[in-house]
């Protein structure tokens, strides 16, 4: 069954948004607020604003939360482990992109 839509859809780039509230982040990641608060306490995502009622997350947080949730669900990693895995993955990503910038020469 094929459902075709011919309208051209335009969206927002979420990384450009720096103003996701706790509620919006929960919705975007389909998780409870308690889970986000745990991730913030572990330093896995860093909101601006002091109290959690005024927390502001940037768009990048969505991917971090979703990756964290998958790692926990699929591999049974605890929050401290997830924080470390995510940091190492960032580091690997940086190294991979540096490598690819060097091209095939090395």
């Amino acid at each position: 069954m094929v459902n075709r839509t011919t309208d051209i859809l335009s969206g927002d780039i979420i990384e450009n948004e720096s103003s996701l509230s706790l509620r919006q982040l929960c919705d975007a990641c389909s998780v409870h607020a308690e889970y986000i608060i745990d991730l913030v306490n572990e330093g896995i995502i860093e909101p601006s604003g002091v109290q959690n009622t005024h927390w502001c997350f940037n768009g990048m947080s969505i991917r971090r939360v979703r990756t964290a949730r998958r790692l926990q669900r699929d591999l049974g990693i605890n929050l401290a482990g997830i924080a470390m895995v995510l940091d190492l993955m960032d580091e690997m990503e940086r190294m991979r992109s540096r490598l690819s910038l060097m091209g095939d020469r090395y």
Binding site: V2, D7, L9, G11
Partner: peptide, 13 residues
């Protein structure tokens, strides 16, 4: 549960 195919045209900014 069946898989439905859905084709979207998306504006790449």
């Amino acid at each position: 549960v069946v898989n439905k195919e859905r084709v979207l045209k998306v504006n790449i900014p």
